[in-house]
Design a protein around this nucleic acid. Structure first.
Length: 1123
RNA sequence: GCUCAGAUGGUGGAACUGGUAGACACGCAGGACUUAAAAUCCUGUGCCCUUAACAGGCGUGCGGGUUCGAUUCCCGCUCUGAGUACCA
């Protein structure tokens, strides 16, 4: 029978499923090998031909490793929580679980028909409670842990409490929030349980903190940094704004150094490692404190007073009047609450009816920048007003919390307590004493303030000619003198107007403003002017920079622009009047006590000096921020936390999983709470309420490779034995789009789980390969405007060229010549858009045609299937075509593969036409796995022909299965062993495209040899089975082997003896130019070879009588004659 | 701007450690089979000049260098793609 791929493939896919052929063994004597594909999100569109590329490669590798005697774990599952299903749910009201289920079914059908050797008994889905139970469990471990710098690992929070009990904060070295308290064990003992919890929250590896987040109003959720690209959401492209919110965060920064170091130990593509390094952004340098000279610094009144700060000065009188009036006009609720808040009862200074901007706040704590509003009564306003008001107050830097009249009246004390707790955890932004909390001051207690800068070139400190603060820096207002106030304010206003994008695009313009204040350079006591400029980022380092114009081009431009001194500090610096020179070469000059030293000598000396004088120290800075871990969304893992009296508590472990509750609508509530607030009767046992945000998309995928090791375990995320055996992923294949998201978070959780002793390996993915993107290859047809006539590509191109020629010459002559030349006149006249003068051109020479995307599935090798095209749309049914050589040739362009460009190629169609084995081999044949390339099916016929040719080897003329048991010839053995070696080497170095070519060569050779020897063909079947498993299973059984045994048979052993040659056709070159081949025995050494060569007639001819100067002879390689 | 990757026929690509550039496949051209088409098979196919033929010249983005010999190593440049963006 001819090669019946459809029948064969269905048969074997069913066989594999029925027999669980690829189930990995849990207990095995064999060495393990873990091959993993990146977790797919099951989207509604299903797979296109780009998706399986990596899966095919990993499948070939898995099958190869099985043949090599490994116990292979090759699982698949779904990252099934995610935004698209939820967006769809919002639009249609359909539960995301239902959509997700349907999408998974499509994925599974498509995956199955490609013949992957997945162990489906281990399938996982992140949205299943049996799975997310363990995601929640890991969250709880993180909550219950802190990072002990001394041991450089995460530890249970109990070891921290123990330290507090024994010695307070004295010997605690932890990664924590900045605002931790310092206390003695005796203090700790007096803390209330709540106070202790508040303090511990500052150390936990997952913690609640008010932070500036990327808020995407269109998606109604917070996004992680890696989900934001250029100020827009990565998914959907909606605008993203900065907003302050109480958020769960993950203290990934505790692991920054280990995440960085680990990169050197893993075999990953360099670009991915580089991206992670940049993301982590380590810089080694020093922090230095510059004492502030503050002639104007005063408290209370004047430019820096709160009165000015918080009320719009123009409206001050009106507001004040309103405020007084309101105070006498309180609602019952406001009054009740005021009795609980006044006189520092909450230990926080709270004012009532205080003017802020153009508003009057009900209650306010200025230090904590928090406004408390009580709604209802005659304040009953509509929702929109409240929102606008909140928005405006947020802009002024205040947060707003609201309570209803009823809430307050029913129990004012509880509300007051709640307010107190909120105030307790909030960062204090009071500035009564500058430099008090955030930076150490000169001589403690003297109240002197300093600005701390971070620098990577502390050696240039003697070259400092100014200091710059970010315009957003919180001290700018205080440090601005009255004379400079207007200028500074103008500058800040101007900066705020610039959008993020503008600020990024415009890196050339130098801008800034002088504050009027000065600081003191600690190393030489020089007075240094203090500026603000938007090239300094508030979020990095301390938000302050020292300007060294001679050594930094940006500083140089700034100094030149504002006429600040440029001080040379190294004798190696050149041309600093033209540009900065950042060299580290040479000896220091103009540099006080480091004069004459080199860079290597100066840096340690300076660091020591700074530390001894308590004005700085060596410091390492990271760009990486803690990861926000919460989304105001429904379709995600519920966070296993409930709140009681404003404080977060974990639910009990035996209450896991905390099931995602059913809700009526997948939208935020009317009051702006996340969708989970709609859940009815969803209340914790101990009272209070559950956390309403859910986990972000990366939660479930940050540990899934462990679940595959023991996917059905109810008692553990994976058993100790399973983790012990499988350890880590040996080969991980996926796209580079996960470089700074999934791949970084996974490494973080992996290290954490290892710290707690649950797992063994410091790095989860030993070897990573990025498969390239498959781009779409769009086809175009060219329609004459307002007609139904289509021009073939080259005719269109010629006419286009003509058009531009016409436009240049502005005469009709060229047109006539052109028409005569190419003789299109007749062709066109009957098909032309006949507007005025019966031509395709208007009087301006404008060419009336338009390129249109045409569905690539009705185009073959760029030739349009005209019949299918006519049927594809009603309007095309009577289309006319102007052909070239009887064909309609389509134009081509490479674009992203997408529905709207009609260039999506679906694997289903190709499998229907050629079968899975052809698809698998063709995708590999396309080129190197890592390279991005446009999809085209131009070569798929060749691969299909190859498989038929392979099939033919086993069959006679009448397509009957016939093999011979005769001994193989030398030539046959040579072909076989050549391919054994080639395939083995290629797979080991992931060069799948080259082995497909080699298979073709081998089959061509065997065909030429008319070989049908069983011993040869059987080994060929094994070799090919990783690539084209279906056809090989079929032939394997026909050869008389047991069904299914092919996957676990032994890979043929390479025997180099079969490749030994006794002769070699030496290429003979003269002066490196290849001239001729000469057959010589490989036993010959140079003298004999030379003798034969010089006797050769041809060679003598090439020599042209010249005498060779030198002869290079490389045995088995080449002979080169130099004349 | 910085970092990384890449550039080879009409096309996808091969050449693994410096040793015959263009394997393999597509496409194209010619031929066989066929009433015809499809399928299949055979031959040719980097470019240029010339020829009856042999032969010759040029060729791996561009310009240099190292070497007996460079697609491969080194220096400089151009272009393309990806990432990143005032990170102090």
């Amino acid at each position: 029978m001819d090669y019946q791929f459809k029948e064969i493939e269905q048969k074997w896919q069913k066989f594999w499923a029925d027999n669980q052929t690829f189930k990995a063994e849990s207990n095995s004597e064999k060495p393990k090998y873990y091959v993993l594909d990146m977790f797919p999100y099951p989207s509604g569109a299903g797979l296109h031909v780009g998706h399986p590329l990596g899966y095919i490669a990993s499948d070939i590798f898995s099958r190869y490793k099985r043949l090599k005697g490994f116990n292979v774990l090759h699982p698949m599952g779904y990252d099934s929580f995610g935004l698209p299903a939820e967006q769809y749910a919002i639009q249609t009201g359909q539960h995301p679980a239902i959509t997700t289920e349907a999408n998974i079914a499509t994925y599974r059908r498509q995956l199955d028909q490609i013949g992957f050797s997945f162990d489906w008994s281990r399938e996982v889905r992140t949205s299943e409670p049996s799975y997310y139970k363990w995601t929640q469990w890991i969250f709880m471990q993180l909550f219950n842990s802190w990072y002990n710098i001394e041991n450089d690992k995460a530890e249970d929070i109990s070891t921290l409490i123990e330290k507090f009990n024994v010695s307070g904060t004295a010997d605690v070295k932890a990664v924590s929030d900045e605002d931790t308290m310092e206390f003695l064990p005796s203090d700790w003992a007096t803390f209330t349980e709540e106070e202790k919890q508040i303090e511990l929250l500052k150390y936990r590896l997952t913690y609640l903190r008010e932070s500036t987040v990327n808020w995407c109003p269109a998606l109604g959720t917070v996004l992680a940094n890696d989900e934001v690209k250029d100020g827009f959401s990565e998914r959907g492209g909606y605008p993203v704004e900065q907003k302050k919110m109480m958020q769960w965060s993950m203290r990934i920064t505790a692991y920054s150094e280990r995440l960085l170091q680990g990169l050197d130990t893993i075999d990953w593509p360099e670009p991915i490692k580089e991206m992670q390094r940049n993301w982590i952004g380590k810089s080694v340098g020093a922090s230095v404190k510059f004492k502030i000279l503050t002639p104007t610094l005063s408290e209370g009144e004047g430019a820096t007073g709160y009165g000015y700060e918080t009320g719009d000065p123009m409206l001050w009188d009106i507001l004040k009047a309103n405020a007084r009036e309101n105070r006498g006009n309180q609602t019952a609720a406001e009054d009740a609450l005021w009795q609980e808040l006044r006189n520092n009862k909450t230990e926080h200074k709270i004012r009532r009816q205080h003017p802020i901007g153009t508003y009057i706040a009900d209650f306010i704590c200025l230090n904590k920048r928090l406004i408390i509003e009580v709604d209802g009564g005659y304040h009953l306003e509509n929702q929109k007003n409240d929102e606008a008001r909140t928005g405006a107050l947020n802009q002024l830097g205040f947060d707003v919390i609201r309570f209803s009249n009823e809430e307050v009246l029913s129990n004012p004390i509880t509300i007051a307590n709640k307010i107190k707790l909120v105030l307790d955890i909030r960062k204090d932004s009071a500035r009564e004493k500058l430099g008090d909390s955030n930076s150490l001051s000169f001589g403690e207690g003297r109240g002197e303030a300093s600005i701390e800068v971070f620098t990577t070139r502390v050696d240039t400190i003697f070259g400092v000619s100014y200091l710059v603060l970010a315009p957003e820096h919180e001290w700018v207002a205080e440090l601005t003198t009255p004379e400079q106030k207007q200028e500074v304010e103008n500058y800040i206003a101007q900066t705020k107007k610039k959008s993020e994008l503008d600020r990024m695009a415009d890196t050339k313009t130098v801008s800034g403003a002088f504050t009027g204040s000065y600081v003191i350079n600690p190393v030489n006591g020089e007075r240094v002017p203090l500026w603000i400029a938007d090239y300094v980022l508030a979020g990095y380092g301390t938000g302050a920079v020292m300007g060294v114009p001679s050594g930094d081009q940006r500083d140089w431009l700034f100094a030149t622009h504002f006429n600040l001194p440029i001080i040379q500090i190294l004798d190696g610096q050149k041309d600093i009047d033209v540009q900065a020179d950042h060299t580290k070469e040479g000896k220091y000059i103009n540099s006080g006590f480091i004069n004459g030293l080199t860079y290597q000598e100066a840096v340690p000396l300076l660091n020591n000096w700074l530390e001894e004088n308590e004005v700085g120290k060596a410091k390492v800075n990271f760009r990486q921020r803690d990861a926000i871990f919460g989304r105001q969304r429904y379709w995600g893992e519920p966070i296993p936390v409930y709140f009681k009296d404003g404080l977060p508590y974990l639910i009990k472990e035996e209450e896991l999983p905390l099931i995602l509750p059913e809700i009526d609508k997948y939208l935020p509530t009317e009051t702006g709470e996340p969708p989970l607030a709609r859940a009815e009767n969803w209340v914790p046992k101990d009272g209070g309420h559950y956390e309403l945000s859910t986990m972000p998309g990366w939660a479930g995928s940050s540990w899934y490779w462990y679940r595959y090791m023991d996917a059905n375990n109810d008692a553990d995320f994976a058993s100790k034995e399973a983790v012990e055996y499988w350890k880590d992923v040996d080969l991980y294949i996926g796209g580079s789009e996960h470089a700074t998201g999934h791949l970084l978070y996974s490494r973080f959780w992996n290290k954490f789980l290892k710290d707690l002793g649950y797992t063994k390996e410091e790095e989860p993915f030993k070897k990573l390969i990025n498969q390239g993107m498959i781009q779409g290859r769009s086809n175009f047809v060219y329609r004459l405007v307002k007609t139904n006539t289509f021009l073939s590509k080259n005719i269109y191109k010629n006419l286009l060229e003509y058009e531009s020629a016409l436009n240049k010459s502005k005469t009709g002559q060229v047109f006539q010549t052109f028409i005569d030349d190419i003789n299109y006149a007749n062709l066109l006249s009957e098909n032309t858009y006949n507007e005025e003068d019966n031509t395709v051109f208007d009087y301006n020479g404008k060419f009336f045609s338009q390129p249109l995307h045409v569905d690539v599935n009705i185009v073959n090798n760029d030739i349009l299937d005209i019949e299918k095209f006519k049927k594809s749309r009603q309007e095309y049914s009577d289309a006319k075509f102007i052909l070239e050589d009887g064909k309609y040739i389509c134009g081509v362009e490479v674009e992203k593969m997408s529905k709207s460009k009609f260039n999506v190629v679906n694997p289903d169609d190709l499998i229907e036409r050629y079968g899975a084995d052809t698809l698998r081999m063709y995708e590999m044949f396309l080129g190197p796995l890592e390279q991005s390339k446009p999809w085209n099916t131009n070569g798929i016929e060749g691969v299909f022909k190859f498989l038929r040719k392979f099939w033919r080897l086993f069959h006679n003329e009448a397509w009957e299965f016939t093999v011979s048991d005769a001994e193989p010839t030398k030539a046959e053995l040579k072909t076989l062993h050549k391919i054994i070696k080639k395939v083995q080497d290629d797979i080991e170095r992931f060069s799948f495209n080259t082995s497909v070519s080699s298979f073709m060569i081998a089959v061509n050779e065997l065909t030429d040899l008319k070989s049908n020897k069983r011993s040869i063909l059987q080994d060929m079947v094994i070799l090919l089975s990783s690539y084209a498993p279906h056809i090989c299973e079929e032939l394997w059984v026909q050869l008389g082997n047991e069904a299914g045994s092919l996957s676990y048979t032994a890979f043929p052993t390479f025997n180099p003896e079969h490749l030994v040659e006794d002769e070699f056709a030496y290429p003979v070159s003269i002066n490196g130019k290849m001239k001729m081949n000469l057959n010589l025995s490989l036993t010959l050494a140079q003298p004999e070879a030379e003798a034969i060569l010089f006797a050769d007639e041809h060679f003598q001819k090439y020599l042209e009588g010249k005498t060779p100067k030198k002869i290079i002879f490389v045995k088995g390689k080449i002979i080169n004659v130099v004349v």
